[in-house]
Design a binder for these strands. Structure first.
Lengths: 103, 103
DNA sequence: GCAATAAGTCAGTTTTTTATGACCACTAAG
DNA sequence: CTTAGTGGTCATAAAAAACTGACTTATTGC
């Protein structure tokens, strides 16, 4: 057997993958804020008291790599960057809404 | 102002609370297995290769405290304990199913 | 060229989570 | 009273995640 399928199908369940993509100290909050519209780095940093650049940067990158957020560079006066939910990210909104109703 | 409401309403969003209750290295998997029926400690330990007693014990306790799992002592031959989803826990099943369909 | 704003990165430290191995409590059989 | 099965706890170690402060890159304005 060369396929090595018995290694552990730990991450074969999409729900588990999603849960992990949204887990971490700040990711749930980032996602929630993203549901309300575009996010900017420094603005996020101010909104999420207690968080720091490093962690925020990591969290954003991971959400981006997970295909839930996308980065858009805005070439304006002081040049800034906005993060939006991707279509994939938006498809999670109804699920999050349902979760809110269970609390 | 004595109520100190400005401290951060970090955890006022039920969806975020839920996400955190299900986050951790093993909790998503425990929850998934619990969806299929009763769980026993040593059996879980064997199924989840790589996990250890300590962590598993913690995860089960936290899921119990979150009101998603309940512990039932079975007074039989070697006396064992089973963990089941509570009604609250079961109410998450459709949400997890939806997540699976997005993956 | 120099300062200001936005969005980061980097090295190093602290905090939080997980993992390890030894040990404990209960029950039942031999 | 010793051994075996189930379900843990405890102290400690290792690994992962988060935090800190200094520094960087890019752009516009002076």
């Amino acid at each position: 057997m060369t396929t090595k399928k018995n290694v552990k199908d730990n991450e074969t369940c999409p729900a588990q993958v999603l849960l992990k993509q949204l887990s971490g100290k700040w990711k749930p909050e980032i996602f929630r804020l993203a549901m309300d519209g575009a996010l900017r780095f420094n603005s996020l940093l101010r909104q999420m008291e207690g968080a720091n650049k490093q962690t925020l940067s990591m969290a954003l990158r991971e959400l981006e790599e997970a295909g839930l957020l996308q980065k858009v560079v805005i070439k304006e006066k002081p040049l800034h960057i906005e993060y939006y939910l991707t279509e994939n990210g938006k498809s999670l909104i109804p699920i999050l809404k349902q979760m809110e109703n269970l609390g």
